[in-house]
Design a protein around this nucleic acid. Structure first.
Lengths: 347, 347
DNA sequence: ACATTTCCTGACAACGATTGCGTAAATTTT
DNA sequence: AAAATTTACGCAATCGTTGTCAGGAAATGT
């Protein structure tokens, strides 16, 4: 008897709304809304009718309308320097899986190592009413003022890997110091004495920690630090080539320790290209999450970060913060362990 | 003289809205809206006042409210099987850059090679009123019914790389046939006669095309096809190991041709692990966009896809469709060329 | 001096969904 | 039987923005 409109259901020109359902069933929008949310003030019979009809027209609530009304969007925003990176793409995987299983949608933005762009990403997220942020900072800027909005507006945020240097935020990191330390220890164990350190510029916390691990391990083993063996280098392959070439030609290292994922691959290539200048065998240890390091020649030992676990942990912390009704836990830093994959064929 | 509220501007508890500006300037919301959109029906003086105040409180229009009102969101949705993949992450880079420069926002979703999840991604995009889709299909399903929504609702869509087998859609692909063909030709030129073909299952168009290129080139050079040398293999490393081991042990290939990015890396590893079973030197050609193939041992020649260019092209086509007022161009397929990087140290 | 045009601005509805409040009918209580 | 309560639903406001329509004031034309 109710004047349903079969043409709406079949053709479905555009998404059917709560209003369409109301009209079709001769109900008010509020009743339909409440029926769908299983409110106690709607009769069982009506509820069933609504639910069935909604099903039949494949009704899905409009998240935009919802986002406008409520203050939240059931989605989180991930900002990374770049996606085309072994480590970050793995972390994103972890985030995506974890968030999905909790019913959250994930928006992924790239800062392209640019602080301005990073701020734009944050603003985009805020404008779209995301419930929280997961951020790994761009390396270009040494300033953190653009992160203040997040604090001021009280938007739940978790940082990972490249974290800001202040305390009152949640962070998920790895023990970079230990990772470095163990890598250097391994090299020393092989009898290496002149371990070159190829590092990114020190404006990121992780870089500093890794650098510190290098220094500490040398000192602990009574090896004097030779400043000539420490070189800083950006992400440009040509720059890596130049740096490595000079290092090999002038400072005769017997091993390399390399500081970050992208730099490791660039450097390895530069080492290969300059192999003819070497007269000793060389050992290489470097941070990288590339899965098939075992294929490399010259061979190298990777220091791996548990990327998926890091992603999963950030989501866990973030959602905890988002859904915390009251008593907000104190911000804390969660530290996971790196792995020195000395037998890299088995990973 | 206008009763502005400095506390709003400084504290900025939450985003300031058009309504706040109206209140502060003693105007109506509609006037403010028009002033901001530079409407001709607002006095110069008022316009200036509004613009300045908006600037001072860092006003940004709320895209959610806008998306609700209008039918569009100035954003596009990218769906790929997975991000943690050399090729896809590079394409995403291209997409992101191109879209950004045209003022579009990019949402990135992963289907995880799952057709159901792929549909969910599409629905998410639709629900969020994205203006268009850029999709590379998941490999798991051989059905395409879940793409019908896009057609029915007339949402601009461009497919790339893994495209559906029907005609009335825009596609950006590479010449897979030629890519394979040239790869095989190179191997034949080296004197290879028993070229093993490791391929993904044939349910994707790109796989079929690459397979066809392999067959055609052998035939053109008078080499009989040995079915034993053709093996199909999924994305699991253990499966690749098994496949390669059997191939080497039983069928004595003198070269390998591998069909897809991920499979290439898995297979290369398997080949390395079984190298002791080989008594001849082996040559390897495979599709991959990994940047540092020159580091690999055993060495291999990569067939590369112009990933960033593919991304840029998809965006160009999509935005053209989105912004087309009338006369919609006929759907077409755009084919870019692969590169056989025979000197892979220089890339 | 009066009618008409131009210029500027405000009120209101709409987009889709939720929610507090109001209320008629049905049911229970006294 | 009257009063109180419960049940089941509708109305209207709200979120931020745009667009349609209407209207007041000033400027122009007769």
């Amino acid at each position: 008897m109710n004047c349903a409109r079969p043409n709406r259901a079949s053709k479905q020109m555009s998404r059917s709304t709560i209003k369409d359902i109301a009209k079709a069933l001769n109900l008010s929008v509020s009743s339909v809304s409440r029926a769908l949310r299983d409110s106690y003030e709607i009769g069982e019979e009506t509820k069933k009718k609504v639910l069935e009809y909604a099903q039949s027209v494949n009704y899905r609530p409009n998240p935009i309308a919802l986002g406008l009304k409520e203050r939240r969007s059931h989605s989180i925003c991930v900002i990374v320097p770049e996606i085309a990176n072994n480590f970050f793409s793995e972390v994103i995987n972890g985030i995506d899986r974890a968030a999905y299983s909790k019913g959250y949608n994930v928006f992924i933005f790239q800062s392209f190592e640019d602080g301005v762009r990073e701020l734009q990403c944050i603003e985009h997220g805020i404008d779209r009413h995301v419930d929280g942020f997961i951020i790994s900072l761009s390396g270009a800027t040494g300033t953190y003022g653009h992160l203040d909005v997040l604090k001021e507006e009280g938007i739940p945020t978790v940082y990972f890997d490249r974290v800001p240097p202040f305390d009152q935020v949640d962070k998920v990191v790895v023990d970079n110091f230990e990772g470095s330390y163990n890598g250097i220890k391994y090299l020393i164990g092989l009898g290496k004495k002149r371990i070159a350190h190829i590092s990114n510029p020190l404006n990121l916390s992780i870089t500093k920690e890794r650098h510190a691990g290098y220094l500490a391990c040398l000192q602990d083993h009574g090896i004097e630090v030779d400043e000539n063996l420490i070189q800083f280098c950006g992400f440009d392959p040509a720059e890596a080539h130049q740096t490595i070439q000079e290092m090999i030609a002038h400072h005769k290292p017997d091993a390399f320790f390399i500081n970050s994922d992208r730099l490791t691959l660039n450097s390895l290539r530069a080492i290969k290209e300059n192999q003819h200048l070497l007269n000793t065998s060389i050992e290489i240890v470097g941070f990288t999450n590339f899965k098939h390091v075992g294929l490399f020649n010259p061979p190298m030992i990777p220091i791996r970060q548990p990327a998926e676990a890091i992603g999963a942990k950030t989501v866990e912390l973030l959602i905890e913060k988002i859904e915390a009704k009251r008593h907000v836990r104190e911000p804390a830093t969660y530290t996971l362990k790196t792995t020195l994959a000395t037998n890299s064929m088995v990973s």
